[in-house]
Protein backbone atom coordinates (compact mmCIF):
# COMPACT_ATOMS: atom_id res chain seq x y z
CA UNK A 1 0.00 0.00 0.00
CA UNK A 2 2.73 2.48 0.96
CA UNK A 3 4.61 1.89 -2.25
CA UNK A 4 1.46 2.58 -4.24
CA UNK A 5 1.13 5.93 -2.53
CA UNK A 6 4.74 6.88 -3.13
CA UNK A 7 4.50 5.82 -6.73
CA UNK A 8 1.54 8.14 -7.11
CA UNK A 9 3.34 11.28 -6.03
CA UNK A 10 4.95 12.14 -9.38
CA UNK A 11 1.65 11.53 -11.12
CA UNK A 12 -0.17 13.78 -8.67
CA UNK A 13 2.43 16.50 -9.06
CA UNK A 14 2.20 16.29 -12.83
CA UNK A 15 -1.58 16.40 -12.67
CA UNK A 16 -1.44 19.38 -10.34
CA UNK A 17 0.01 21.73 -12.93
CA UNK A 18 -2.13 20.23 -15.65
CA UNK A 19 -5.31 20.62 -13.61
CA UNK A 20 -4.27 24.12 -12.61
CA UNK A 21 -3.85 25.18 -16.22
CA UNK A 22 -7.48 25.97 -17.08
CA UNK A 23 -7.77 27.82 -13.77
CA UNK A 24 -4.67 29.85 -14.60
CA UNK A 25 -5.95 30.95 -18.01
CA UNK A 26 -9.37 31.85 -16.67
CA UNK A 27 -8.15 33.48 -13.45
CA UNK A 28 -5.47 35.57 -15.14
CA UNK A 29 -8.11 36.74 -17.60
CA UNK A 30 -10.48 37.55 -14.77
CA UNK A 31 -7.71 39.39 -12.91
CA UNK A 32 -7.42 41.74 -15.88
CA UNK A 33 -11.20 42.14 -16.10
CA UNK A 34 -11.60 42.81 -12.39
CA UNK A 35 -8.66 45.18 -12.22
CA UNK A 36 -10.63 47.32 -14.67
CA UNK A 37 -13.58 47.26 -12.26
CA UNK A 38 -15.78 44.68 -13.96
CA UNK A 39 -16.84 41.50 -12.17
CA UNK A 40 -17.62 38.72 -14.62
CA UNK A 41 -19.12 35.76 -12.80
CA UNK A 42 -20.02 34.29 -16.18
CA UNK A 43 -16.67 32.50 -16.45
CA UNK A 44 -18.32 29.09 -16.28
CA UNK A 45 -20.52 29.80 -19.28
CA UNK A 46 -17.66 31.42 -21.18
CA UNK A 47 -15.44 28.44 -20.50
CA UNK A 48 -18.11 26.07 -21.76
CA UNK A 49 -18.50 28.07 -24.95
CA UNK A 50 -14.74 28.01 -25.41
CA UNK A 51 -14.59 24.28 -24.76
CA UNK A 52 -17.31 23.56 -27.28
CA UNK A 53 -15.91 25.91 -29.92
CA UNK A 54 -12.43 24.44 -29.74
CA UNK A 55 -13.84 20.95 -29.92
CA UNK A 56 -16.16 21.69 -32.84
CA UNK A 57 -13.55 23.62 -34.80
CA UNK A 58 -10.89 20.96 -34.40
CA UNK A 59 -13.45 18.30 -35.21
CA UNK A 60 -14.36 20.09 -38.41
CA UNK A 61 -10.88 21.04 -39.59
CA UNK A 62 -8.57 18.68 -37.74
CA UNK A 63 -6.37 21.71 -37.19
CA UNK A 64 -5.46 22.82 -33.66
CA UNK A 65 -4.56 26.33 -34.72
CA UNK A 66 -7.98 26.82 -36.26
CA UNK A 67 -9.44 25.48 -33.03
CA UNK A 68 -7.57 27.96 -30.87
CA UNK A 69 -8.29 30.84 -33.23
CA UNK A 70 -12.00 30.04 -33.29
CA UNK A 71 -11.97 29.80 -29.49
CA UNK A 72 -10.33 33.21 -29.17
CA UNK A 73 -12.87 34.66 -31.57
CA UNK A 74 -15.80 33.25 -29.63
CA UNK A 75 -14.22 34.44 -26.40
CA UNK A 76 -13.94 37.95 -27.76
CA UNK A 77 -17.54 37.92 -28.99
CA UNK A 78 -18.75 36.71 -25.58
CA UNK A 79 -16.77 39.53 -24.01
CA UNK A 80 -18.33 42.00 -26.40
CA UNK A 81 -21.81 40.87 -25.41
CA UNK A 82 -20.99 40.89 -21.68
CA UNK A 83 -19.42 44.34 -21.92
CA UNK A 84 -22.35 45.64 -23.93
CA UNK A 85 -24.77 44.75 -21.15
CA UNK A 86 -22.55 45.70 -18.22
CA UNK A 87 -20.63 48.70 -19.56
CA UNK A 88 -22.98 50.24 -22.12
CA UNK A 89 -26.38 49.26 -20.72
CA UNK A 90 -24.90 49.37 -17.18
CA UNK A 91 -26.95 46.39 -16.03
CA UNK A 92 -26.07 44.63 -12.78
CA UNK A 93 -22.90 42.66 -13.48
CA UNK A 94 -23.83 39.72 -11.29
CA UNK A 95 -27.16 39.22 -13.03
CA UNK A 96 -25.60 39.47 -16.48
CA UNK A 97 -23.01 36.94 -15.33
CA UNK A 98 -25.76 34.55 -14.24
CA UNK A 99 -27.39 34.96 -17.65
CA UNK A 100 -24.10 34.29 -19.38
CA UNK A 101 -23.68 31.05 -17.45
CA UNK A 102 -27.15 29.91 -18.46
CA UNK A 103 -26.51 30.88 -22.07
CA UNK A 104 -23.22 29.01 -22.10
CA UNK A 105 -24.81 25.90 -20.63
CA UNK A 106 -27.83 26.05 -22.92
CA UNK A 107 -26.07 26.93 -26.15
CA UNK A 108 -23.34 24.33 -25.83
CA UNK A 109 -25.84 21.68 -24.77
CA UNK A 110 -28.18 22.56 -27.60
CA UNK A 111 -25.48 22.64 -30.26
CA UNK A 112 -23.75 19.54 -29.00
CA UNK A 113 -26.95 17.53 -29.00
CA UNK A 114 -28.01 18.78 -32.44
CA UNK A 115 -24.63 18.43 -34.11
CA UNK A 116 -22.71 15.71 -32.37
CA UNK A 117 -25.03 13.35 -30.60
CA UNK A 118 -24.34 9.81 -31.69
CA UNK A 119 -21.20 10.67 -33.66
CA UNK A 120 -17.79 9.32 -32.85
CA UNK A 121 -16.42 12.47 -31.41
CA UNK A 122 -12.78 12.29 -30.45
CA UNK A 123 -10.48 15.01 -31.72
CA UNK A 124 -6.80 15.62 -32.15
CA UNK A 125 -5.18 17.10 -29.04
CA UNK A 126 -2.45 19.59 -28.29
CA UNK A 127 0.82 17.68 -28.38
CA UNK A 128 2.86 16.85 -25.32
CA UNK A 129 6.33 18.24 -25.17
CA UNK A 130 8.57 15.56 -23.76
CA UNK A 131 11.96 16.86 -22.84
CA UNK A 132 14.20 13.83 -22.95
CA UNK A 133 16.37 12.95 -19.98
CA UNK A 134 14.90 15.68 -17.81
CA UNK A 135 11.46 14.14 -17.94
CA UNK A 136 12.94 11.01 -16.46
CA UNK A 137 14.05 12.86 -13.36
CA UNK A 138 12.52 11.36 -10.26
CA UNK A 139 9.47 13.00 -8.68
CA UNK A 140 9.45 16.30 -10.59
CA UNK A 141 10.44 15.00 -14.00
CA UNK A 142 6.97 14.28 -15.22
CA UNK A 143 5.52 17.42 -13.75
CA UNK A 144 8.03 19.85 -15.20
CA UNK A 145 9.17 18.26 -18.42
CA UNK A 146 6.36 16.13 -19.74
CA UNK A 147 3.35 18.33 -20.30
CA UNK A 148 1.30 19.48 -23.25
CA UNK A 149 2.05 22.81 -24.84
CA UNK A 150 -0.93 24.63 -23.34
CA UNK A 151 0.37 23.79 -19.88
CA UNK A 152 3.72 25.34 -20.76
CA UNK A 153 1.76 28.24 -22.19
CA UNK A 154 0.92 29.34 -18.65
CA UNK A 155 4.64 30.08 -18.13
CA UNK A 156 4.37 32.60 -20.94
CA UNK A 157 0.95 33.92 -20.01
CA UNK A 158 1.71 34.98 -16.45
CA UNK A 159 4.77 37.17 -17.16
CA UNK A 160 3.09 38.68 -20.21
CA UNK A 161 -0.01 39.53 -18.22
CA UNK A 162 2.12 41.02 -15.43
CA UNK A 163 4.08 43.04 -17.95
CA UNK A 164 0.95 44.40 -19.61
CA UNK A 165 -0.67 45.21 -16.28
CA UNK A 166 2.29 46.86 -14.56
CA UNK A 167 4.64 48.05 -17.29
CA UNK A 168 2.50 49.47 -20.06
CA UNK A 169 0.30 52.54 -20.36
CA UNK A 170 -2.59 50.20 -21.13
CA UNK A 171 -2.07 48.34 -17.86
CA UNK A 172 -1.84 51.62 -15.97
CA UNK A 173 -5.12 52.66 -17.55
CA UNK A 174 -6.74 49.34 -16.55
CA UNK A 175 -5.61 49.70 -12.95
CA UNK A 176 -6.72 53.30 -12.72
CA UNK A 177 -10.12 52.58 -14.27
CA UNK A 178 -10.74 49.88 -11.69
CA UNK A 179 -9.77 52.10 -8.77
CA UNK A 180 -11.05 55.53 -9.71
CA UNK A 181 -12.81 55.59 -13.08
CA UNK A 182 -13.71 59.25 -12.84
CA UNK A 183 -10.11 60.30 -12.34
CA UNK A 184 -9.20 58.26 -15.40
CA UNK A 185 -12.00 59.90 -17.33
CA UNK A 186 -10.78 63.39 -16.49
CA UNK A 187 -7.37 62.72 -17.99
CA UNK A 188 -8.87 61.53 -21.22
CA UNK A 189 -8.92 57.75 -20.70
CA UNK A 190 -12.03 56.12 -22.12
CA UNK A 191 -13.42 54.18 -19.18
CA UNK A 192 -15.81 52.24 -21.39
CA UNK A 193 -13.11 51.50 -23.92
CA UNK A 194 -10.72 50.14 -21.31
CA UNK A 195 -13.47 48.10 -19.68
CA UNK A 196 -14.57 46.61 -23.00
CA UNK A 197 -10.97 45.67 -23.70
CA UNK A 198 -10.38 44.21 -20.25
CA UNK A 199 -13.60 42.19 -20.41
CA UNK A 200 -12.77 40.83 -23.84
CA UNK A 201 -9.24 39.87 -22.81
CA UNK A 202 -10.74 38.11 -19.81
CA UNK A 203 -13.33 36.16 -21.77
CA UNK A 204 -10.83 35.28 -24.52
CA UNK A 205 -8.48 33.76 -21.96
CA UNK A 206 -11.37 32.04 -20.23
CA UNK A 207 -12.47 30.56 -23.54
CA UNK A 208 -8.93 29.26 -23.99
CA UNK A 209 -9.22 27.69 -20.57
CA UNK A 210 -12.27 25.89 -21.88
CA UNK A 211 -10.42 24.83 -25.02
CA UNK A 212 -7.77 23.24 -22.83
CA UNK A 213 -10.41 20.90 -21.44
CA UNK A 214 -11.57 19.60 -24.84
CA UNK A 215 -8.47 19.67 -27.04
CA UNK A 216 -5.63 19.19 -24.59
CA UNK A 217 -6.69 17.63 -21.32
CA UNK A 218 -9.19 15.31 -22.99
CA UNK A 219 -10.15 14.84 -26.62
CA UNK A 220 -13.88 15.34 -26.47
CA UNK A 221 -16.70 17.58 -25.36
CA UNK A 222 -19.07 16.53 -22.61
CA UNK A 223 -21.99 18.67 -21.48
CA UNK A 224 -20.99 20.64 -18.40
CA UNK A 225 -17.36 19.57 -18.86
CA UNK A 226 -16.14 22.62 -16.94
CA UNK A 227 -17.79 21.31 -13.76
CA UNK A 228 -17.50 24.51 -11.75
CA UNK A 229 -13.97 25.52 -12.76
CA UNK A 230 -15.28 28.91 -13.85
CA UNK A 231 -16.54 29.56 -10.35
CA UNK A 232 -13.42 28.22 -8.71
CA UNK A 233 -11.42 30.63 -10.87
CA UNK A 234 -13.36 33.45 -9.23
CA UNK A 235 -12.12 32.29 -5.85
CA UNK A 236 -8.60 31.95 -7.30
CA UNK A 237 -8.66 35.65 -8.23
CA UNK A 238 -9.53 36.62 -4.67
CA UNK A 239 -6.97 34.25 -3.19
CA UNK A 240 -4.33 35.49 -5.64
CA UNK A 241 -5.04 39.05 -4.57
CA UNK A 242 -5.89 40.28 -8.04
CA UNK A 243 -2.44 39.76 -9.50
CA UNK A 244 -1.45 37.40 -12.33
CA UNK A 245 1.34 35.85 -10.29
CA UNK A 246 -0.95 35.38 -7.33
CA UNK A 247 -3.50 33.76 -9.60
CA UNK A 248 -0.84 31.35 -10.86
CA UNK A 249 0.13 30.11 -7.41
CA UNK A 250 -3.44 30.02 -6.17
CA UNK A 251 -4.40 27.95 -9.21
CA UNK A 252 -1.64 25.49 -8.45
CA UNK A 253 -3.07 25.08 -4.96
CA UNK A 254 -6.47 24.23 -6.40
CA UNK A 255 -4.72 22.06 -8.96
CA UNK A 256 -3.53 19.88 -6.07
CA UNK A 257 -7.11 19.22 -5.04
CA UNK A 258 -8.18 18.39 -8.57
CA UNK A 259 -5.17 16.11 -8.96
CA UNK A 260 -5.92 14.34 -5.71
CA UNK A 261 -9.52 14.00 -6.76
CA UNK A 262 -8.48 12.49 -10.06
CA UNK A 263 -5.90 10.10 -8.66
CA UNK A 264 -7.68 9.00 -5.51
CA UNK A 265 -10.90 8.30 -7.37
CA UNK A 266 -8.96 5.96 -9.61
CA UNK A 267 -7.50 4.08 -6.70
CA UNK A 268 -8.92 0.60 -6.55
CA UNK A 269 -10.15 -0.95 -3.34
CA UNK A 270 -10.02 2.22 -1.29
CA UNK A 271 -12.49 2.07 1.56
CA UNK A 272 -13.55 5.68 1.10
CA UNK A 273 -16.41 6.40 -1.32
CA UNK A 274 -15.26 8.23 -4.45
CA UNK A 275 -17.60 11.14 -3.75
CA UNK A 276 -15.37 12.14 -0.88
CA UNK A 277 -12.66 12.92 -3.42
CA UNK A 278 -15.04 14.31 -5.97
CA UNK A 279 -16.10 16.96 -3.49
CA UNK A 280 -12.51 18.00 -2.67
CA UNK A 281 -12.02 21.01 -5.00
CA UNK A 282 -15.38 22.51 -4.10
CA UNK A 283 -14.94 22.09 -0.37
CA UNK A 284 -11.39 23.42 -0.68
CA UNK A 285 -12.70 26.51 -2.44
CA UNK A 286 -14.97 27.25 0.48
CA UNK A 287 -12.22 26.65 3.02
CA UNK A 288 -9.84 28.93 1.14
CA UNK A 289 -12.43 31.70 0.97
CA UNK A 290 -13.10 31.38 4.69
CA UNK A 291 -9.40 31.55 5.46
CA UNK A 292 -9.12 34.95 3.75
CA UNK A 293 -11.32 36.55 6.39
CA UNK A 294 -12.11 39.98 5.09
CA UNK A 295 -8.54 40.56 3.95
CA UNK A 296 -9.51 42.09 0.69
CA UNK A 297 -7.51 43.86 -1.98
CA UNK A 298 -10.37 44.18 -4.41
CA UNK A 299 -10.31 47.11 -6.84
CA UNK A 300 -12.40 49.92 -5.35
CA UNK A 301 -14.70 50.27 -8.34
CA UNK A 302 -15.30 46.52 -8.76
CA UNK A 303 -18.80 45.72 -10.04
CA UNK A 304 -19.89 49.36 -10.01
CA UNK A 305 -21.07 50.70 -13.36
CA UNK A 306 -19.50 54.02 -14.32
CA UNK A 307 -21.90 56.88 -14.85
CA UNK A 308 -20.20 59.57 -16.87
Amino acid sequence: MDTVWIAMIPAILAATWRMATPLIYAAVGEVITERAGVLNIGLEGTMLLGAFTAFAAVYATDNLWVGLLATLLVGVVVGLVFAFFTVTVKANQIIVGVALNLLGLGLTGFLFRTLFLGTKNAVRTVPVLNIPVLSDLPVVGEMLFHQNLMVYGTLLLVPVASFVLYKTAFGLAIRSVGEHPRASDTVGISVSGIRYAAVMIGTALTAIAGAFLTIAHTNQFVEGITSGRGFIALAVVVFGRWSPKGAFWASLLFGVFFALQLRLQAMPDLAIPYQAFQVLPYAATIVVLLSLRGRSHAPSALAIPYEA
Partner: peptide, 10 residues
Protein backbone atom coordinates in the same frame (compact mmCIF):
# COMPACT_ATOMS: atom_id res chain seq x y z
CA UNK B 1 -33.00 19.56 -27.34
CA UNK B 2 -34.77 20.81 -24.24
CA UNK B 3 -31.59 22.45 -22.94
CA UNK B 4 -32.75 25.28 -25.16
CA UNK B 5 -34.76 26.51 -22.18
CA UNK B 6 -31.51 27.55 -20.51
CA UNK B 7 -30.85 29.78 -23.49
CA UNK B 8 -34.33 31.25 -23.26
CA UNK B 9 -33.81 31.84 -19.53
CA UNK B 10 -30.52 33.58 -20.14
Amino acid sequence: PSVLVFVVQG
